[in-house]
Design a protein around this nucleic acid. Structure first.
Lengths: 338, 338
DNA sequence: TTGAAAGCGCTAACAG
DNA sequence: CTGTTAGCGCTTTCAA
């Protein structure tokens, strides 16, 4: 079970209170005693038990981050930003992976609540925030990450996904494309809906332009590849001349699907492609992919800052919205004079 | 501080022991009482405090996984395998990121020890395992992941990196390449050294073949890109006709560097490229990258299995070594009849 | 089938 | 400056 503070005290010939003081307020203790205690700690290899500390203090030093999908570099970057900000306050970020499953998301949040974390940063999968309201009611602050602000009672950091969708679609339209396909899903995810809505709005503003939505089961390379393969025929028949993928993982997969098989189509010749997130792999794809960039690490940092804010004061929760930015690469070069 | 079991007991009109029994051994309790207690739990929104549970039980239900770099998809895949295996035993995997920094690795391991995790899975950065031996001495089992077996006292899962390096280099040599560059680092990382050694052995077996090592500061896209840019000139002068990158992140970066600028070189025309790990992005690169595949998820699963093994019995620690496999793609097509 | 109580390791308040 | 002690929330004996 490990060495406890009691054994250290016995070894050093002092009381447990003194050992605790050496560890937590060394200036209250005589230098000589400090030394004796440190010697005992080293000899015994004492490591404090954080469960006991936490039980005593009623609060953990950790912040829980529930990631939609840890295999998406977007989230590891958000996590990195969060870690950096947390470290400033001597806190730790615990990362849990929902793998795009609502059940796992729920169980991760519950795990964090059991741990009495300082707060939970979450990009909820479902539209139903009642569970999160319960968590907050029980005293654990919640910050919404990468999420719209329908319910303004939670602090939130987000990127304007509607604007991002518009940006992407308008760029395709300006390049002469008229028959767009939106690839993304599942469609219960708010960010995906917003990106689609933004794109649809841009399309509606242009005569003769259309957009078809192709729903995927996940935001993964594999799903993208599957859809890309199916799209080849449509592109060949001229029914689609541009694809807007809801994230870069999908976009990279779609590209592989489009370029694969015996009847590959040309990017951007036959079809233009735009992704979302601007993960570092987007620039390294077969045809470098135009993408909508989000300030990933900044999102993580801001989430932690908002958490501390809401813990410290009862003030109105803040809603930070960042603007997305289009990064143009060759996958979306203008259509060859349609 | 949240609702405690005491309040639930009061609300339900029973003792705390009974509430605990309802939660942990419901068959010992009268059905009627079970219902009363559940009602109280729901009304109060009680969530057990895991710090208290753990303090009482002396053990956490979590397994600590210390990843070298969470931004490398290789590790998130290993983590996924570990999570899956852990879930079978109703355990949780806690992920900590060392970001290739020894200090962070040490502090992560210490954090896990404070938490009294069931065990630590780690790919140690440094060659010095004494710290890990201390951890083990204090009763926390340690499993080495993705790591050679110089110290056979720890259970380990690894892939034969020397064989992997050989595989890569031999393939390049068979394609007619003779002037290889190895890109990787920092050179204190065992896996990197092994991959280089394997490659060097293969090169030594072929007349007139040479290999130059170019050390990088990190195994990242950015470092790869930097080196790739520098290599362009060497390739143009014919001093290098193949690059073996120590992992795919580097390889993808190297490729970008080689193809970038005003004087790009041709892959595989001027220079062949092989990476390592076979992360899913390797196949999606501008020129799809040949790579040495490791069974990533299986590595994670096996690590958890070895942990349970060593916890259950005092038997000799096992050392599982998987064989790497070369996945050939177009980046390494044979030289154009040198 | 239930209640009472000890004790896990730690911190902080208080007394000396 | 140091020792003693209560109590954080929980599980598990032991009695009733």
């Amino acid at each position: 079970m490990g060495v406890s503070i009691k054994e250290v005290a016995a070894r050093a010939g002092v009381s447990v209170g003194t050992v605790s003081n050496v560890l937590n307020r060394p200036d209250m203790v005589k230098a000589e005693t400090v030394e004796k205690v440190h010697a005992a700690i080293d000899e015994l290899g004492y490591v404090p038990n954080s469960a006991a500390q936490q039980l005593r203090e009623g609060q953990s030093r950790s912040i829980g981050l529930v990631a939609l999908d840890i295999n998406n570099p977007f989230f590891t970057d958000v996590a990195r930003g969060a870690e950096r900000a947390a470290a400033l306050g001597r806190h730790t970020v615990l990362l849990a992976n929902s793998g795009e499953s609502i059940e796992r998301e729920i169980s991760n949040i519950e795990m964090f609540e059991r741990q009495r974390v300082r707060g939970v940063l979450v990009s909820p999968l479902s539209e139903d925030l009642s569970r999160l309201r319960d968590v907050r009611k029980r005293g654990i602050p919640v910050v919404l990450v990468d999420r719209g602000t329908e319910d303004t009672s939670f602090p939130s950091v987000a990127v304007d996904d509607v604007a991002g969708g518009e940006l992407a679609a308008r760029h395709l339209l300006e390049g002469g494309r008229r028959r767009l396909a939106f690839v993304g899903g599942p469609m219960r995810i708010r960010q995906i809906i917003d990106r689609y809505r933004g794109a649809a709005a841009a399309v509606a503003a242009v005569d003769e332009a259309t957009i078809t939505s192709i729903e995927t089961e996940a935001l993964s390379l594999d799903e993208g590849m599957r859809v890309g393969g199916e799209l080849r025929a449509l592109v060949a028949r001229g029914e689609i001349d541009a694809v807007f993928a809801a994230n870069d993982l999908l976009a990279i997969g779609v590209q592989q699907g489009l370029l694969g098989g015996d009847d590959p189509v040309a990017i951007p010749g036959d079809v233009a492609l735009v992704g979302y997130d601007d993960i570092s792999f987007a620039a390294a794809a077969v045809v470098p992919i135009t993408s909508v960039r989000q300030p990933r690490e900044l999102i993580g940092e801001t989430a932690v800052a908002l958490l501390e804010e809401v813990r410290e004061s009862e003030s109105e929760p803040r809603h930070v919205v960042f603007e997305p930015e289009l990064v143009v690469r060759s996958s979306s070069a203008p259509a060859p004079t349609a």
